[in-house]
């Protein structure tokens, strides 16, 4: 995810302090990975240097100085361009799972067991996400669904590969 563009986008609704930006980011997009303060301040310095944000005011109120940032016109254009640009679809051609299956077959280990335990691990994660989705709000549901659909796609591949193991073993045999 482009943290710079996301923080810029959050500034479109009005100027904010770095701390406020971090909190909003974590709340809306952080899921289980909150931003580090260092990441926020280094990103804001870069955006400032590139003219995409400007300092709207500095407050200290007895403590350390806190800068309030505002988005510039160039920043708004940058966000628009980013949103209009489709994300590059992931080709998924470099698969560790595929590599493991082939290596298991090449070395005489059980590829079927490998697939079964992977299947089990995937389903366990799907259960955790389903539970979280059930207890969460619409934002939680959407983000969990995104993950669930990807895991489901992996599972379908695991099933298909299980059914084709004999065939694959003949193809990869040394």
């Amino acid at each position: 995810m482009s943290i710079g563009h996301t923080l810029l986008g959050l500034l479109e609704s009005g100027p904010r302090h770095g701390y406020d930006l971090k909190r909003t980011f974590d709340e809306k997009f952080g899921q289980d990975r909150p931003l580090h303060y260092g990441q926020v301040y280094s990103t804001m310095s870069r955006l400032l240097k590139n003219g995409l944000v400007e300092v709207d005011g500095v407050e200290s109120e007895g403590g350390p100085e806190r800068k309030r940032y505002a988005i510039t016109d160039a920043g708004i254009t940058d966000v628009s361009q980013w949103l209009a640009q489709p994300e590059k679809p992931e080709p998924y051609l470099q698969s560790t799972l595929y590599t493991k299956v082939v290596l298991a077959l090449l070395t005489g280990r059980s590829a079927a067991d490998l697939l079964d335990s992977q299947r089990s691990a995937h389903l366990r994660m799907m259960r955790i996400l389903t539970d979280r989705k059930r207890k969460g709000d619409l934002a939680d549901q959407l983000i969990c669904d995104h993950a669930l659909f990807h895991l489901e796609a992996d599972l379908r591949w695991l099933e298909l590969t299980s059914a084709r193991l004999d065939q694959l073993a003949k193809v990869v045999a040394p």
């Binding site: 995937h122 389903l123 259960r127 489901e152």
Partner: peptide
């Protein structure tokens, strides 16, 4: 369907 099975224990 794995998504349905994910509702199980």
């Amino acid at each position: 369907e794995a998504r349905v099975a994910a509702y199980s224990d």
